[in-house]
Design a protein around this nucleic acid. Sequence first.
DNA 1: CGGGGCTTGAAAATATCTTTCAAAGGTGAC
DNA 2: GTCACCTTTGAAAGATATTTTCAAGCCCCG
Lengths: 305, 305
Amino acid sequence: MTNDLKESFSTDSPPAPAALAAKVRTLSPSMTRSMQRVAEAVAGDPAGCAALTVTGLAELTGTSEATVVRTARLLGYPGYRDLRLALAGLAAHQESGRAPAVTADIAVDDPIADVVAKLAYDEQQTLADTAAGLDTVQLGAAVAAAATARRIDIYGVGASSLVGQDLAQKLSRIGLIAHSHTDPHLAVTNAVQLRSGDMAIAITHSGSTGDVIEPLRVAFDRGATTVAITGRPDGPVSQYADHVLTTSTARESELRPAAMSSRTSQLLVVDCLFIGVAQRTYETAAPALAASYEALAHRHTPRTR
Amino acid sequence: MTNDLKESFSTDSPPAPAALAAKVRTLSPSMTRSMQRVAEAVAGDPAGCAALTVTGLAELTGTSEATVVRTARLLGYPGYRDLRLALAGLAAHQESGRAPAVTADIAVDDPIADVVAKLAYDEQQTLADTAAGLDTVQLGAAVAAAATARRIDIYGVGASSLVGQDLAQKLSRIGLIAHSHTDPHLAVTNAVQLRSGDMAIAITHSGSTGDVIEPLRVAFDRGATTVAITGRPDGPVSQYADHVLTTSTARESELRPAAMSSRTSQLLVVDCLFIGVAQRTYETAAPALAASYEALAHRHTPRTR
DNA sequence: CGGGGCTTGAAAATATCTTTCAAAGGTGAC
DNA sequence: GTCACCTTTGAAAGATATTTTCAAGCCCCG
């Protein structure tokens, strides 16, 4: 008879989603005193209760294991084990609900965990912005030019030089002739050698870095295909660029210099360029990549695991 | 020995929050075949596995209970019971936030727009995984050491060298004495000069790059505070690291070499480290940053817009 | 104040999880 | 190629947790 009651409840409510507190209230009248104590504890602190065993919860509520199990049954679960799983889910849920508010600027006194969260969030944002703002037509044109270029010269100074090196490194790996130039003088000297069929890529966030514009201008004048990767497509660098790839500019704060997000953005663009080229030269790129893995293998000490 | 290692890991990572898939990928290489099967099942269907008992999961994966428990331990939980609770939480989590799914691998014939979207998505994922998997205690310790170090030497070769250069560049900007070494011989030569109060940072995705481990070992022996930034926290490099910062490992495809996502992950870690140090040395860092802007200004041609 | 049914917890029974241990499988040295 | 050694693995024993049983206590009502 009591059994019938329980039966009807458990069928009413399946495994139960998340509205546990509400169910506790609803069912409370049909509960005995000690069961109410258990239900209350559970509704009050799902996370805490999820960490407890039957015995633990029984002690906490000053009841017995049997009562705890009975309560779990009444709430619609096959047993305490399942209630506990649901509780864990609930806890995770309200954990995430606790809005991180990671959108704020990074402050001097932010705990390290916040720094990580905010930084990751910012960079994710930057990536999304960059992807959304990237002109795929320009990118496609740049890819086509790079895939068939006799040689590729890349100019970047400061933080952008690392991006340039990254690109050069990767293009070299798939068998292209690509070099990154950091020294403005050498860059210009090399640019003079370029001609039609060659390619020059300038990377500058500000779009107005003279040391990078100059070699690009020379390359442009010599008839090479030129590409600018910049956050300011309206900047001086674009004058000498056949194709302009725009990187995004995220808000910067005192502690987070612009260089940081521009680098993320530039790298995404450069990666897209690389993959595009790799696709287009797949026949040679795939074996070249495999070969470079091979060549590096022996530089790793084998004692893993 | 292996045991000690594992032990230290499980204490490194507490109950673990939500980045289970990422952790599975990170730890996968150090797992045995049958453990990998279990980990895969768990990562692939958290909700389903949460409903299974040890025995059930063992049967599903064609292994034994012991293996399941071992896997749970390796993932950082005290036992299977706790893994199961975490799984339930995870399931509830992803229940609420249906993933959009641009998750497919990049294919040779993907149009360029898809490449951009997939790449951006992958890198965002990598960032999220990294942030979730980063041990803030270790990071805090590394920050504290860096902020007070007399000098900081950074070792990285190949793709990681760029990350090292990036870090060195930024730390230098806020007035710290930081150098990135690419040449293994010079790195060792320099490492010999280090002593207590100095700091050495090794960056290697594989965790087993001899050229990077060697200088770190020397630095470690000389009494410097050592940090490893690696995707394989169980790799040989960690032997000589006072603090290990784990980068995430994203699935890689033929066209998207692992180096790409590991770089993203490493950069995030390095950025966090940098910002942490900047916070701690704010008094000197802020004016130093401002001064470096100032100094660069004249290198930009003013004719913007 | 005593009977009948409801509530409760102690303890037994069961299920689940954890540990141990020996066999199977693999690896490197000779 | 073969042996010794180390790793990996699952079966089964051991430990915990959960569920069930059952009798004592409690409460309501006559």
